[in-house]
């Protein structure tokens, strides 16, 4: 997995709550299992009409947000189906950071397995960030976000922070410790 530390870009505001994984990657693409290339299916039914033409009113189709690496949205982002394709699509499209007041549990977990930093912030700060037009800088090692000459901090579990900073995935980390785990298991009294 690629390492992730600082991300500087304008933010893409997707101002609605309860964005569910059915919207992030619609069902017709679940049959595909390659982990790359899913970006083209991201928010498919919102981005394209039934003839495959771009819906101009949808935020991702606004050229001013092209090249953005930070997605910002409402409460309970990533709810619904457990499909990991949702995280694959967000990463592949180019988003490294997702900011929301809250996340659904399985999606939140899936982010760390795929090099995405999910940041949960108070609602009023999220609304303020959504309106920011200048570049926002997210710094994972110092756990800060700088925007409009302000600096705020965010919370993250330290082991997960390390995972992203070092580009490790959970399975690789644990398997590296397999010998230690096995010897611990042997000596442990239950």
């Amino acid at each position: 997995m690629e390492k992730l530390n600082t991300v500087s870009s304008i933010v893409t505001p997707l101002d609605r709550p309860n964005v569910d994984t059915d919207q992030i990657v619609p069902k017709q693409f679940l049959k595909l299992v390659q982990r790359t290339g899913f970006g083209e299916f991201l928010f498919y039914d919102w981005r394209f009409d039934q003839n495959g033409n771009q819906r101009k009113e949808f935020v991702l189709n606004d050229p001013k947000y092209s090249g953005s690496h930070i997605l910002i949205s409402g409460d309970n982002f990533g709810c619904g189906s457990s499909r990991e394709h949702a995280a694959w699509a967000i990463k592949d499209y180019g988003f490294d950071v997702v900011i929301a007041p809250s996340f659904a549990d399985i999606f939140y977990n899936n982010c760390f397995k795929n090099g995405i930093l999910p940041i949960s912030l108070a609602k009023d700060i999220v609304s303020e960030l959504m309106k920011t037009v200048s570049v926002v800088k997210v710094d994972l090692s110092s756990q800060t976000i700088q925007y409009d000459s302000k600096s705020i901090s965010f919370e993250i579990d330290q082991s997960r922070k390390k995972t992203l900073l070092e580009g490790l995935d959970d399975i690789a980390i644990t398997l590296m410790h397999e010998v230690k785990i096995s010897s611990f298991e042997k000596t442990r009294k239950i």
């Binding site: 899936n110 397995k113 995935d169 399975i171």
Partner: peptide, 23 residues
């Protein structure tokens, strides 16, 4: 995600993403 269903039998049942299931 609907793995939660079977908790009705008195089990701890929950859904996971692909990477976690692989693990």
């Amino acid at each position: 995600s609907h793995t939660n269903t079977t908790g009705a039998l008195g089990a701890f049942a929950c859904g996971l993403g692909h990477t976690d299931v692989a693990y």
